[in-house]
Design a protein around this nucleic acid. Sequence first.
DNA 1: CGGGCGTTTGAATCAAATCAATTGGAGTGG
DNA 2: CCACTCCAATTGATTTGATTCAAACGCCCG
Lengths: 259, 259
Amino acid sequence: MLATAAARSPSVAVDRPPISPRARDDEAAQTMRRVAETLALVADAVPVQRRLLRPGDAVYQAGQRFTHLHLLNAGFVKVVNLSADGRDQIVGLKFRGDWLGFDGIADGVHGCDAVAMDTGEAWSLPYDALVDACAQRPRLMGKLHRAMSRESARDRHSLMSVCTLPADARVAEFLRNWAQSLSGRGLRADQILLRMTRAEIGNYLGLTLETVSRALSRLARERLIEFSDKGRRDIHIRDADALAAFVQLSLAPDLSVLQ
Amino acid sequence: MLATAAARSPSVAVDRPPISPRARDDEAAQTMRRVAETLALVADAVPVQRRLLRPGDAVYQAGQRFTHLHLLNAGFVKVVNLSADGRDQIVGLKFRGDWLGFDGIADGVHGCDAVAMDTGEAWSLPYDALVDACAQRPRLMGKLHRAMSRESARDRHSLMSVCTLPADARVAEFLRNWAQSLSGRGLRADQILLRMTRAEIGNYLGLTLETVSRALSRLARERLIEFSDKGRRDIHIRDADALAAFVQLSLAPDLSVLQ
DNA sequence: CGGGCGTTTGAATCAAATCAATTGGAGTGG
DNA sequence: CCACTCCAATTGATTTGATTCAAACGCCCG
């Protein structure tokens, strides 16, 4: 856990928009609208090739030439980065409405694998055609840019979690993010069916599989989550706010000092 | 340190382009050319507002409305993410030729502070004008997209380092990246003048300042780096390859098994 | 000179990794 | 149906590496 704050001159302080408790709901609605708009806008701008995904299918693979961007219309995809020495790490999880393939734009070759973890559907868009379409339609370009920017922001956020949170809170935050992704897409967010092993979760969070298992057990013991009868991959979140509070708590261990 | 690899079906294996030892040099040349091109291309496409930076100046701040993207023409900038609870974390370091401000595109408001750590110069470009220019010039749009994609790739890479490397290797990797950034801009890469405190480095790497200090001492003891007479922030890299090898080594502790 | 800050270094503590054993389910075949 | 294997998951005991707490040093600057 980090103790040290970056030095920051007090003179650059500025008003930060407060994050209201109901911002979450608005965000969910926004996300849904955005996804629908994107799908519609893209559909009549470029030739879309729909592609059915089965668990284990690769949407694209590291080393492949980059030709298409993809929109995930259904399902759930993990993005895996393989380093030169053969080690790999899950660097992103993608849900409905997310774009896939931005990593290939930089140098024309994909740097990651994108692997479906569930049946789903990807819309593949030829990048060149998309660029042309963007030149015609500023709104489409705006959407694309915002999607890329949002992806960065998310990466940044997950980086912060990984760096600053202790193991239990990291797992809690992982579940919270998952639930949020679900609710942002209009799905029920209190029931999560993990389609990943403990090892994969650990890989994603920078923990060992044993630590993930222990963390889940502790969260269950604290009654923050509940395992369903169906198995230990089916998790019920009784109280999302309590989960969020738990994460916050482990960031500020002694708030008694503040008051 | 991670032990577990993500499950990956063997069927999706694909040829990965090998990273040759001279790829580094090519990349440096490429980077320089790219930076020069970008500066030129942008200059006559949109109204550029040059802005002198002094250490501590904010290029932009979290909470501000997003209006401009910035190109860093000289100097060195840290990007700081402040979370709701007041904690902050350095999420990026920017050098000459890097873009600044992508994080604001997503929702029209900046989510980070970008603070100069050195005298320098930023070129500020009105985003709207830039979008218009992109619609006219596909090459400019390509440049912009590639820059955004490259930023993601870098974030991803630093995420992996933070997740997988032990403290010493993390610091070594930090220095290696810094040196690479310098050489990519045509500057001498064997002499690094850190303009960050140990606390800031630790914040960036997910370590405490003491651990950073110890790691640097150990690297110096191993003769992988050398402190200059001028002070403990001035670091000489005697052998960049040895540094890289050190990082690799801590990923694969027992290569004896392989042979 | 003395105070403040950044840095180094040591000793004790603690959280997560590692090592190891066991349990639980899903699938297979006798 | 049961015995069997295989793999995921859990749980415990131990070790390790980073943090924490603490002290001291070097340095710049008023």
